[in-house]
């Protein structure tokens, strides 16, 4: 197995692990972390597959996509964390209600 595919496969592993955590855990901080793990998985797939060029160099477009993706992820995580604090501040707990009142 080439290292190229090893990274991509590890990325898929992270992606599904994050998905599992997102569904299983109730605490919002854990859910936000799980989303970030999923994101890292996607970036790892992009980075791993970028090394398949015949001349051994990396594909710059993949790398540009990763940078864009990371910046978007930072922005989304920041908003999610502040929203979580606000949920905690208003409802007294950082979990989503199991069943909405309606």
């Amino acid at each position: 197995m080439s290292s190229t595919f090893f990274f991509a496969l590890a990325g898929i592993g992270l992606f599904v692990l994050g998905l599992y955590g997102l569904i299983i855990y109730a605490h919002l901080l854990r859910k936000i972390l799980a989303i970030n793990i999923m994101g890292s998985g996607v970036f790892l797939v992009l980075a791993g597959l970028a090394h398949r060029l015949p001349d051994g160099t990396a594909d710059p477009i993949s790398h540009a996509m990763i940078i864009t993706g990371i910046v978007v992820a930072v922005a989304a995580t920041a908003l999610a964390l502040v929203l979580m604090l606000q949920v905690q501040h208003t409802t007294g707990q950082a979990v989503l209600p199991e069943k909405q009142k309606y």
Binding site: F5, L9, I12, V16, Y20, V45, L49, R52, D59
Partner: peptide, 28 residues
């Protein structure tokens, strides 16, 4: 259940990536 579903997704994605040709016609 979730673990099972997630595992199935993983296997599907791994198979798809495995089937990629090791080098590719490039935009580069």
């Amino acid at each position: 259940t979730v673990g099972g579903i997630v595992l199935m997704i993983a296997v599907g994605l791994l198979y798809a990536i495995w089937s990629l040709s090791p080098d590719y016609a490039e935009l580069k």
